[in-house]
Design a binder for these strands. Structure first.
Lengths: 330, 330
DNA sequence: TTGTATGCGTTATCAT
DNA sequence: ATGATAACGCATACAA
């Protein structure tokens, strides 16, 4: 017991400056000895805050997202905020919209990594809600702040690289069609193709869903083609690896028989056989940037009026490795 | 307004049975119309609970852990608990022990995925703390409940497989030496070797840290050996892939020149070139089992008196693919 | 079955 | 600079 009122204890702990030096020390010492801990729940109730942000992620098990999550966690913990994770692919949708997290005072803000969620998903009637930031994907035309990679630009980089190597027949393995990333990457692919005076052939598009298995399927389609493109760009490294893996089983060699470019630069890309040429996206960094943006909104909500489309685009870069090579003619 | 007291509203929402049918409907309807949300913070304060569990993970970006996390999240959200994640590798250790999460009423329980954390890490003086469950790794001799894989058994499976293929010279790429997984897997490796009457050679142990890069380093060491083992077991798939990748760059062929067995069965294992023979661990499942164990402890703390070593071991299984083959003599 | 009143542990306000 | 006190929003004991 430091023989002071609870108010003084509170001040000594949360506003050290507003208390006399001696009292402060006495309180600190008493706290140490008694093993006292502030009750965060009570503090949050009083302060009308949750002390946490929630992250909506399509699949935590996916390294693409978990890396972004790592960046978010690092940033949030530095700001003294807890990170809540919610998997949007859980079959618990009957429990009601994930937006509950916000309206229940569970979290002070939300980070959305799932581009398939419409932005009206979160509105409950017309009630105001805590800040939301979209990261890495988002529905077209959302009015919510968003951070993303330059996906179209990344695809273009891939095409430029292949065209520079002399390739004129270039195919593309798509992600899920309703995914914004897929659409953007395809857009960049087509734009770059046009820029190089190359045509887009429908049978050189291969369906996929970002997974290894779908990449392997694409390989089967490629093998079945009479007129095969000499190079393939993909919408994810995993599909690129699946594609190469299946080709290998059929005796087709990368990059001798076909060049392959991935997308994401996941860890294994550098060590795949052959090492995968790909488009790198700084995933940890996007997590940090997005978390910082959200934290800014939480700390100073007024500075960013509703409807102001705050957008930040991070560049993607080309990493040349061994899965691409020049054509014979080049 | 349903024209009732706040107490009735509270009851209608949290104890529907204790309120008249008509009143209940009126309240529900009023709630819907007014857009009322219960304040979880206030509820938690009153109930003296946090409504959340915290997961201590060494590295969220690592797919090994993020998969376990996915299992945890699924289970916890089914039980109405939020999941807080904390990265133990963050340089924020100066903020004090992660145990704060518990003592601050931030969480009702804790799941520890980081075996390098001593179990006295969480004690603050001698105060009682909410339940803690170790999952997948733990310090030797902890008195805390723990769920894990049969790591030693998994390693033994790998050796049995290779011995059955005729291999008599078998090496092993280790994980970090202070890691429990490393120690267990090594123990199983040596036990199985002895069972087959094979000797353990010190220069057939390769240092590693679970990463791709360390696997590649091990390949360099293997290449430098005068007398090389014809088969290698590893303590992680990533090291196995790094090992094969580096060998490939040096023109050494797996499995023709050396057989390789991984550990974990990460997604890419099936699609690596060649497809990796490995020891599968149901990672999502361990997350579910661990989360359920923790939830049980939270719901009924008395049933598991302190000091009772609750332990559950999940089996590992051998997945034979293309990175292993019989020796010429076999 | 429902209402009244009190307390959960903090912090903010107002005195002193 | 410090103490007394009210209030944050909910859940419960008790009364009606």
């Amino acid at each position: 017991m430091a023989n002071v009122s609870t108010a003084t204890v509170s001040r000594a702990l949360s506003t050290p400056g507003s208390v006399a030096e001696g009292t402060r020390r006495a309180v600190i010492e008493a706290v140490e000895r008694s093993g006292y801990r502030v009750n965060q729940t009570a503090r949050n109730l009083r302060r009308k805050q949750a002390g946490a942000i929630v992250v909506l992620v399509p699949n935590i098990g996916n390294p693409f997202f978990s890396r972004i999550l790592a960046g978010i966690e690092a940033t949030a913990s530095k700001a003294g905020l807890n990170v809540l994770i919610a998997d949007t692919r859980q079959p618990q949708a009957d429990e009601g919209p994930l937006g509950e997290y916000l309206h229940n005072n569970h979290a002070d803000g939300m980070l959305v990594l799932d581009g398939s969620l419409r932005d009206d998903f979160f509105s409950h009637g017309n009630h105001a809600h805590p800040p939301i930031v979209y990261a890495c994907e988002w529905s077209e035309g959302t009015s919510l702040p968003s951070i993303r990679f330059d996906n179209a630009g990344g695809s273009a980089l891939a095409v430029d690289h292949l065209a520079g190597l002399g390739h004129t027949s270039i195919g593309h393995i798509l992600g899920p069609l309703d995914n914004v990333l897929t659409q953007e990457r395809r857009r960049g692919f087509e734009a770059a193709l046009a820029r190089h005076g190359l045509r887009v052939r429908n049978d050189w598009y291969f369906d996929g869903d970002f997974t290894l298995a779908s990449g392997a399927n694409a390989a089967l389609s490629w093998l079945a083609l009479a007129d095969r493109p000499t190079a393939i760009t993909t919408s994810s490294d995993e599909m690129a690896c699946g594609f190469m893996s299946e080709l290998y089983r059929h005796g087709v060699h990368v990059p001798d028989d076909v060049s392959v470019v991935g997308f994401d630069d996941i860890d294994i890309a550098e060590r795949f056989i052959p090492a995968l040429t790909t488009i790198r996206q700084p995933r940890m960094e996007i997590g940090e940037v997005a978390a910082n943006a959200l934290i800014d909104l939480i700390r100073a909500p007024d500075r960013t009026p509703v409807g102001t489309a705050f957008t930040k685009v991070l560049d993607a870069t080309l990493i040349v490795r061994s899965s691409t090579r020049a054509t014979a003619e080049a």
